[in-house]
């Protein structure tokens, strides 16, 4: 039994049953397929998280965001500026307790360099209803190149706990048809 020493003293010399061998082989191959899928997707898939990251001091990031906001703000909603940066440009989204700043407006079908960083705690960028989720760290500036392919209103939820107001942290991203 499994709770007593093996009956066969030389258990490592016992042959393995065919059924077990086949299963081990199948499971091993399945592992290789799954590993291969991740590699394949890097080569041919269109949905890979960017590796482009820079170290950044919170006040520097704050300044970059403010510069963009002052240049491209097109309107305000509930006191929060909505920016409409030119396609292809660098867009800065700043996380802080408890807001995503500013609100963004993209053009459908256009590609943007979206920068994510926090100036205080960790936050979670969760784009709804598409359900893309990316961790946001203070001190790290993460640059994604995204293509907004559907015109509609998106919300950005925070999904990393960031203090007692965490559940009030919602931002907006609009994609407008040209």
């Amino acid at each position: 039994m499994a709770i007593s020493p093996p009956r066969e003293r030389l258990w490592w010399k016992q042959p393995i049953h065919r059924v077990e061998l086949i299963w081990i082989l199948v499971a091993f191959l399945w592992g290789i397929v799954m590993f291969g899928m991740m590699v394949y997707w890097h080569a041919f898939g269109k949905h890979n998280l960017s590796n482009e990251t820079y170290k950044v001091a919170p006040n520097e990031y704050y300044a970059k965001t403010e510069a963009m906001v002052s240049k491209y703000t097109v309107r305000e909603e509930k006191g929060i500026p909505v920016v409409h940066p030119p396609p292809g440009s660098d867009v800065y989204l700043m996380a802080r307790v408890w807001a995503w700043y500013p609100s963004l407006e993209f053009e459908q079908g256009q590609t943007y360099r979206l920068h994510l960083s926090s100036i205080d705690l960790q936050h979670g960028f969760s784009l709804q209803p598409m359900n893309i989720n990316i961790q946001v760290h203070p001190g790290y500036e993460h640059v994604l190149t995204v293509t907004a392919d559907q015109a509609r209103e998106y919300s950005i939820i925070c999904n990393e706990f960031c203090g007692f107001g965490h559940h009030t942290m919602v931002g907006k991203l609009y994609v407008v048809a040209k």
Binding site: K78, S155, N159, F161, H167
Partner: peptide, 17 residues
Amino acid sequence: GVPRRHWDITFSDALLH
């Protein structure tokens, strides 16, 4: 898309919803 560790997905006291 419902977040973990989140008190209120109705966002009743949030500015944006």
